[in-house]
Design a protein around this nucleic acid. Sequence first.
DNA 1: GCTGGAATATGTCCGACTAATAATCGAGTC
DNA 2: GACTCGATTATTAGTCGGACATATTCCAGC
Lengths: 245, 245
Amino acid sequence: MQDEAQDNEGEKPKRGTGRRLHGAIAHKLGSAIVSGEYAPGDKLEAEVTFSEALNVSRSAYREAVQVLAAKGLVESRTKAGTRVLPRSRWNLLDPDVLAWAFTGEPDIEFIRNLFELRAIVEPAAARLAAERRTKDDLKVMKTALAEMRQKTLATDAGRSADRDFHNAILQATGNDALIVLSASIGAAVSWTTQFKQRSRTLPRNPIPDHVRVYDAIAAGDGDAASEAMRLLVDLALEDTRSSMG
Amino acid sequence: MQDEAQDNEGEKPKRGTGRRLHGAIAHKLGSAIVSGEYAPGDKLEAEVTFSEALNVSRSAYREAVQVLAAKGLVESRTKAGTRVLPRSRWNLLDPDVLAWAFTGEPDIEFIRNLFELRAIVEPAAARLAAERRTKDDLKVMKTALAEMRQKTLATDAGRSADRDFHNAILQATGNDALIVLSASIGAAVSWTTQFKQRSRTLPRNPIPDHVRVYDAIAAGDGDAASEAMRLLVDLALEDTRSSMG
DNA sequence: GCTGGAATATGTCCGACTAATAATCGAGTC
DNA sequence: GACTCGATTATTAGTCGGACATATTCCAGC
């Protein structure tokens, strides 16, 4: 009974895609907006028109728009229609928005910005983790590191272990805001890792960098942890940059 | 242009509250969830029941729930009902979620986490601003600073000028992700400023700290800007802490 | 230029139907 | 008799269509 997508001619993201209908619409519209298909200030078709064009009910369409509005992508006003908001009002760190940003060819400048933010946050997180980590935290990091070493970043399991490692560091900080933020960035960055893998035959072996971070955190050395993480992020950025620009 | 927060909240957030209806419901439910009135894992009343209890249509209620779901607060599944998600899945940095978190008595631990994040991000932003600021950026900062000096933080205009100053710094970094993030945190922090003002008769004069930051950015001295901003954030945290804990 | 009404698109409401699935119950087996 | 597994049922979110309300925009008329 899996969805077979019989006759959706691409233009109509109708039911059967697995997602709930309004979720699928939100995904479609969100991707289109983030990718620049609609420019800020543009007015979307009227609800009745658009929903008919998509072959969905107005209710479903409206719920999708509510989602976009909740993420700051659009704003609806009576009689004026729903318009795309300026990029400055988008919740760029929202996991969904980030995912939509990476559905197409991502903007290189935006990736640079994300890495810059990551280069700010992650070393600081590593420092806090070194100061506050428990034995359990260390154990999680260690197993993730082992898994990562075994599977390499070329596999899904390996990338998953990579995320686990970084998440364990965040968890050790005990700071919810930091965790949420960095998890979003981390997910986005992991999208880019796939780009690296596909276009570069010789990615750097990331294990030694990670081991340095782990050792510093285990030793409780905040300065060393911060520095090691800074190095790791810098190298990752360099790899990504050379595989795109 | 932007008038808001004009709320008359009775027991029933029914029509006529000024906000759009589903927005009012989302606000009410969101605040309740974030404040812990509903614990993670709790199941909300069924849609028909709850919407009737609120005297609103099921459609309006559903659109409100979509907003909450978009922010990671709840998840709906057929037959199982809609349940509050674990805190780790909340988009804590979403502007609305932050606002909801500060409608009631905010959690001190959470405020500490926010300041910790701010203490990481803002100094780094100040450094970038010092390296990249244009003359226009400096002009905006300067006028904001003057306004701030004149009105003091006790007035709305003064707090607004404070935000303008920090936003100008962010703008100068040219990093969208950084701007969005720090704007959210900044807004949240400005809520706490009100707490400071109401419970402390002798708040520190914040102008000298800000001037130090400005001078360093104007001079293009990244290290000094970072250090000055670190100091500013630390002092602000100390003030807030002493006025609450 | 100002005022007031008509046009129009979003906002809200209603009631019915669909679809998915948790919960229940029963057939079959050990 | 207890248990596993599979079909049935009941419940709840999801979707639909249409109606009416409300708020603006826009334009006509003064």
